[in-house]
Amino acid sequence: MSEVYSVDVEITAPVYDTEVTDRVADAITNVFPNADVEQRPGELHAEAHDLEHFSELLHRREILDTARGVFFDNLQGDRFSFTLKKQAAFEGVVTFSVGEPDELGEIHVSVRVQEPDVESFIDHIAPPTRDGRPVDPEGST
């Protein structure tokens, strides 16, 4: 059974004077390939409506439990947010930024889930695991 998800993903990343704007845009689109990126003063802003590729990256790196922890720690109502290391994202790798801000900058992501609900969507992109494997086989990609 295939669920229909309705989500709005807002992505922002500062562009420092020492950075090439296109490389920052690549960092965003390497992780969120369907994002529409636009330049704003001092930052890039992007919007997307799915996290399928992002979910695949989480599965590949086998960091579903880490992702779930970050998502649920930053859950507020119908939204959750997280921060990624910009340099890792440029390489197409998901690395969550926790603690001190990364010196090379971060990508800030806010996800608002309209359908079905935020917990179900988190289960879809980062399913619960047992012994490192997704519990629900339909949740694996």
Rank of each mutant, 00 (worst) to 15 (best):
D73K: 07
N74H: 08
N74G: 04
L75I: 00
L75D: 01
L75Q: 04
L75S: 01
L75E: 05
Q76W: 03
G77S: 13
G77P: 11
D78A: 11
D78G: 07
R79G: 01
R79K: 14
R79M: 11
F80I: 11
S81F: 07
S81E: 11
F82R: 00
F82Q: 00
L84A: 04
L84M: 07
K85M: 12
Q87K: 15
Q87L: 14
A88T: 04
A88M: 08
A89K: 06
A89W: 04
F90V: 03
F90K: 06
F90L: 14
E91P: 00
E91K: 12
E91W: 12
E91D: 15
G92H: 10
G92K: 10
V93M: 01
V93K: 08
V93W: 02
V93A: 04
V94G: 04
V94C: 02
V94N: 00
T95F: 14
S97H: 09
V98Y: 06
V98P: 00
V98T: 15
G99V: 07
G99R: 08
G99A: 05
E100W: 05
E100G: 02
P101I: 00
D102W: 01
D102E: 10
D102C: 05
D102R: 02
L104N: 15
L104W: 12
G105P: 05
G105W: 05
G105Y: 03
G105E: 06
E106N: 11
I107F: 03
H108K: 15
V109E: 09
V109F: 05
S110F: 02
R112Y: 03
R112C: 02
V113N: 09
Q114A: 13
Q114W: 08
Q114T: 10
Q114G: 08
Q114N: 14
E115G: 01
D117W: 05
V118G: 06
V118R: 00
E119Y: 12
E119F: 13
E119H: 09
E119T: 09
S120N: 13
S120I: 03
I122Y: 06
D123Y: 08
D123Q: 09
H124Q: 04
H124M: 05
H124F: 15
